[in-house]
Write a protein that binds this DNA or RNA. Structure first.
Lengths: 204, 204
DNA sequence: TTTTGATTTAATCAAATGATTAAAACAAAA
DNA sequence: TTTTGTTTTAATCATTTGATTAAATCAAAA
C-alpha cells in the first residue's frame, strides 16, 4: 500500500494509523468512529489516512480481519491437534485464551458485535466450517458423548472463557468484581474451567 | 411529554417512535443510528421525533433503560426468593431466560455493548450491588462452596445462557448451527444448563 | 546538485446529520 | 361556527463527516 520508499522511523506511518484505527474502532465500533478521530489519534493529517488506506471501510476491513484472526487464531491449532487428549485440549484452550483476553479485554465484544452487524465479514475469512467438522476435537467429543451435540460443549467452553469479558462492564458496575479483583477471578478460571468442563462432560 | 390531548389511534405516535427507535438502536447501536432512519421507520417526520423526545440522546436513554430492565428484570425476583432451593433457582433462571432470549436474540449484545461504551447508564438503574450481595442466591452458593467465589458461578450460569446468543453470528457463519437448528439447540439447553451447573457445583 | 517519486499538508467539497422554526392541519371545547 | 391548544409538516441551519485536490516537503538516486 502506498509508496515503497525506505522507512525512516521504526514505526511506519501505516502502522501508526493502524494502531490508532485499532484503538478507535475497538472503542466505538465502525459506525460511531470518525476518520478524523483516528487521524488525530495517530498524530497525522486526515488526508494522509485516505492516502494510505483508500477509505474508512477499507481501513476497517483490515483491522477487522486482523482482530478476528487474533481472537480465533489460537483455537484452530489446538482443536486440530490429534496428539492431544480432550482434556489437555481444554487445558491448553483455557490457558491460552485467558492470557490473551487479559491483555485484550474488549476484543471479544468488538469482534462479535461488528460480526453481528456485518456477518459477511466472517465468511470470507476461511472455511472454518470444514476445519471444524473434521477436527479431532469434535471427534473426541462425539466419542465421549454421543447423546449431546458437540456444538453444545463448544459453546460451553467458549462461553465460560469469553463471557466474563463480554459482561465485564456489568460485573464492574454491580460490584461483583472490582477492576483489580477481575484479574484475580480470571486467573482462577484458568484452572477452574477445565475442571468444570470435565464435570459437564460426565453429567447424567 | 408532549401534549395531553386524547389519543385517537390505539398506537400512539410516541409508541410508534419508541418501537422504531428500539429497532434501529438495537440494530446499529447508538452511534451509528440516524434520527432520520428512526423517523422513517416510524413513518413520521423528523421534526416530530424531536418534538416528542427532545433529542436523540434522551430517546436513546429511554430505550436503553427499558432494554436493561428487560434483560435483567427477570433475575432479581428469582435470585432473591428464599423459598427456592439453589437447584430450583437455576432451573427457573434457565427456563425464563432461554424463553426470553429466543424472542429477543440480540438483546444481550445490544445492552452489553452499549453498557461498555457508557458504563454510567447502569449505575443509575438501581443499587443491584446491595440487592445481589444480600441475596439468598449468594448465601446458598457460599454455603455449598465456601472455597470458590460466588461470582464465579454467577458468571457461569449467565454465560451458559447468554453466550450462545452473543456468539450467534459466529455459530451461523461457521455452520455450527443453522438458523432453524439454533432454536433446537437452545431448547435443549433449557434442561441441560441446570444439570451442568449442578455438576460444576460438585467438582473436586 | 538536480531530479524523481514518495509522503504530508492545508484548503475545500458535497453529502449527511442533529436540531430548530414558522406555519399548516387537526380535533375537541365553547 | 369559532376558538383553543395539540400535533404534524416543510424548509432551513449550523456542524460534522468522508473524501479529494493541488501544492509543499522530503529523502534517496542520478
Amino acid at each position: 500500500m502506498a509508496g515503497k520508499r525506505e522507512k525512516k522511523s521504526y514505526v511506519t506511518t501505516e502502522e501508526k494509523i493502524k494502531a490508532a484505527a485499532r484503538k478507535v474502532f475497538m472503542q466505538k465500533g465502525y459506525g460511531a468512529s470518525r476518520t478524523r478521530d483516528i487521524a488525530e489519534e495517530a498524530g497525522i493529517n486526515l488526508a494522509l489516512l485516505n492516502y494510505y488506506f483508500r477509505s474508512k471501510e477499507k481501513l476497517f476491513h483490515e483491522i477487522m480481519m486482523e482482530r478476528v484472526q487474533h481472537l480465533f487464531g489460537a483455537v484452530a491449532p489446538i482443536i486440530n491437534d490429534p496428539s492431544l487428549s480432550l482434556e489437555s485440549k481444554m487445558e491448553k484452550l483455557a490457558s491460552a485464551y485467558i492470557d490473551m483476553l487479559l491483555e485484550n479485554p474488549d476484543l471479544p465484544m468488538f469482534v462479535l458485535n461488528e460480526l453481528r452487524k456485518q456477518p459477511d465479514l466472517f465468511k470470507s475469512q476461511m472455511n472454518i466450517e470444514q476445519l471444524l467438522k473434521n477436527s479431532s476435537f469434535i471427534k473426541q467429543l462425539r466419542e465421549k458423548r454421543s447423546d449431546v451435540e458437540p456444538a453444545q460443549y463448544l459453546m460451553n467452553i467458549m462461553g465460560l472463557m469469553l463471557f466474563p469479558f463480554l459482561a465485564k462492564p456489568v460485573l464492574l458496575a454491580t460490584g461483583l468484581a472490582g477492576e483489580k479483583n477481575f484479574g484475580t477471578l480470571m486467573n482462577q478460571r484458568r484452572q477452574l474451567i477445565p475442571k468444570w468442563i470435565k464435570a459437564i462432560l460426565q453429567t447424567k
